[in-house]
Design a protein around this nucleic acid. Structure first.
Lengths: 193, 193
DNA sequence: AGTGACATGTAACCAGTTACATGATTGT
DNA sequence: ACAATCATGTAACTGGTTACATGTCACT
């Protein structure tokens, strides 16, 4: 049974060939909101996939720093990836410490809860801006590459889908923050100092 | 450094005393969308918290099955929980295999991608219904307990906050599914059989 | 006698993270 | 000299999951 990080690597490589370093950076930028990766997980995954003939690499001299191993999918790699893509996915798993805390906001002094919420809102505003920036990049790249046809090419579809999901969920989180602030303001005080 | 599951248990117990069995069931119903738990993680957590004096239990005979250990927070447990609640939380982590797949939807035949998406949409519709059911329960409980004042008591605030977050995020996911279907329909065909 | 809900636990495993390790090149 | 970016890896850890383990009571 293949590890998820291996599929993530395959999914990144179907878009374009990349080195482990590039893969890490790209995935951190565009995929961290649905699958976090760190470089120390990427390199072993690439080694496994290479040993099994799903990817292969070309050593390319770097302008700066050590030699780069630029990986791309083999035919078998692409086949195995797409077979997996067209299979049912288990329910997404979320670990949101903030919501565990939110479960107890009723037991916190009102201003403390509101202050925490304001911080959370700020963080999500920044993340939303990040995804909106990515979206603009994708749209801009389309206008150059496809003459602004508006018709989606295979690589563009995937990138757009995940960035749109990021945007929608951040917008939702912001809506929640506003709603939560209203609810907390209406809260009976538990402790009056 | 305390494990997250321990805080989750404390957060559940601040609302009302429960046994490990009840804790597992309640957390599965109301918290699985932001922190998944299984019973085999709950019992060791309770043992640690009990050994450190943050919770204590009363053995209560069950109507059916073995004796129940009904846990509640100690004063120290409540203090430590609330101090943690009022501390900054790291960014939420999401692991959504579906979105890894979505990243490759452009490389799938159009109907396959649409069919997968329809399944995903169905699953999220069901989850939305689940949270809406929970929300109704909370509102109904309030009308009995607080005379429908609309003013939020401490226990109600937390429950409402997290259920609202679940509802908003499921609504967002549904919106994404619809948007994604439109995008895929506009997609250039990669493979024509 | 068998299934299913109630009820509590332990042990083995593993995927992903953190920390460690190395080294080139460019800019200050 | 020192910091930063580029670039690739290994080793240890660990939190959470899966599987194992046991036993009662009620219903069919």
């Amino acid at each position: 049974m293949r590890k998820m990080v291996e599929y993530v690597v395959l999914a990144a490589l179907v878009h374009e060939p990349r080195s482990g370093y590039d893969l890490t950076k790209w995935l951190t930028r565009v995929a961290s909101h649905f699958w976090p990766v760190v470089h120390s997980g990427i390199y072993p995954a690439l080694a496994v996939l290479e040993a099994e003939g799903l990817v292969h690499y070309e050593a390319v001299a770097s302008e700066q720093g050590p030699e780069r191993k630029v990986y791309s999918l083999t035919v078998r790699g692409r086949e195995e990836l797409l077979a997996w893509v067209d299979s049912p996915a288990p329910t997404a798993q979320v670990r949101d410490e903030q919501l565990v805390r939110a479960l107890c906001y009723g037991y916190l002094p009102r201003e403390e809860a509101l202050a925490r919420l304001a911080q959370v809102r700020q963080a999500h505003t920044e993340r939303l801006a990040h995804y909106e920036g990515l979206e603009r990049q994708i749209v801009a790249a389309d206008e150059i590459g496809a003459g602004g046809s508006g018709i989606a090419g295979p690589a563009r579809v995937g990138k757009l889908l995940v960035v749109r999901c990021g945007i929608i969920s951040e917008q939702g989180y912001l809506r929640w923050c506003d709603e939560a602030a209203l609810l907390i303001e209406s809260m009976r005080m538990v402790v009056e100092a």
